[in-house]
Design a protein around this nucleic acid. Structure first.
Lengths: 216, 216
DNA sequence: GTCTATATCGGGATAGAC
DNA sequence: GTCTATCCCGATATAGAC
């Protein structure tokens, strides 16, 4: 064993940094899991540390405070959040673009439900922290996409509609299956992790939105 | 002044009970406001008491603990919650029934946004407390309404659809305007309290759902 | 029913050894 | 970087006078 360790040990500096990064990632993951189910105030540093596999004090070596960790987790979530909307570009065929966007959002709801829920918790509580992000980048991004939708509408490629309400409706429906998963499960006994159910939701949502746009 | 009080004073027992009830209502209102914006753990008894206009200790005279108050608030919310769905009955004209239901839900989102948000917070966090209610009364109610919708569909009065997804979509969209109000405001600069905006949302949502059902 | 004072505790954060 | 021990504050809840 000792013989193996002899040259298996990487250069200290490099090794340490890599471990540190992995540690931080593990803490962020644990933070996401705990914050999304208990909220900022309901979560305890100890609980997050336990889930991440280290001690409370040790966690506070990586992040100076619970709030700081919370902000870091939230920032990570938001980055993922603004992404899928990009796919609605003017060059696409409208029907295919909406179909793709809906599938992308539902895929995110299936694969990152905790992120969706944390985002939801934060917004519902007034998002004092996210407000600048919402009024800046998000607002601009939505405005750009609304312009594209209006363009399609003016060209007669989709029916008349209110782009803002259209976008909100897609967000609301697709995120509902992550955020209200326990209610969906209580009523139907199923969830997005069930492949048949997932495809059913994709198809239903695509059909609804496309019908609303006068496409079929 | 004293002369007026002479016969203005009601029988002590009655007076006290009435005041007690009013007090309790005020506490429940304050609890709803604070819990819906800070969550169960973020809220403090002191903060709720202050908003209700009494002292912390006095509040704990009316409710034995913070959790007990929280449960009482939640129960009150849930009762309002299950109500509007009743309006979807088999005797109605389908188009009118959906239009009415959508308007009723959006009216609730406009007039009781805090209730919507508290409900949302609770569900998102897993609703350990509400689970029985969801799997019992709510599930049964939805099943009954789904049967009605299937009946309409079988009779060719509305297009083919999945009743569960249809109901979830209506819930998701209508509640979105209460729960994600800060995001809606950040993006559009408006909210349901603006009458024009409210009517726009009602019209858009009705149009979307009716189109999805093959009605127009 | 309402108040003041206080017991009690969970949990965030720090000090300092290793 | 990780540990043990500890400080300390906020907040729930109770005791008891009025």
């Amino acid at each position: 064993m000792r013989e193996i360790r002899r040259d298996a040990a990487p250069p200290p500096a490099r090794r340490r940094r890599k471990d540190g990064e992995a540690r931080r990632e593990a803490i962020l993951d644990a933070g996401l899991a705990v914050f999304s189910s208990l909220g900022l105030h309901g979560a305890s540093v100890e609980g997050i540390a336990e889930r991440a596999g280290l001690s409370k004090t040790n966690l506070l070596y990586y992040f100076p405070s619970k709030e700081a960790l919370y902000v870091a987790v939230l920032r990570r979530v938001l980055a993922v959040w603004l992404d899928p909307l990009q796919s609605l570009d003017a060059d696409s065929e409208p029907a295919a673009a909406f179909r793709g966007y809906i599938r992308a959002k539902l895929t995110l709801s299936r694969d990152a439900p905790q992120a969706s829920r944390l985002f939801c918790l934060e917004i519902v509580q007034g998002a004092p922290l996210l407000r600048p992000e919402l009024e800046g980048p998000l607002r601009d991004l939505v405005a750009a996409k609304a312009a594209i939708i209006r363009g399609w509408s003016a060209a007669g490629r989709i029916g008349p509609n209110d782009p803002h309400h259209l976008i909100f409706s897609i967000w609301a429906i697709t995120q509902h299956y992550a955020d209200f998963a326990v209610q969906v499960d209580a009523v139907t006994g199923r969830g997005l992790d069930d492949p048949d159910f997932f495809e059913g939701v994709v198809a239903s949502t695509q059909a609804l939105i496309l019908a609303g746009l006068g496409l079929h």
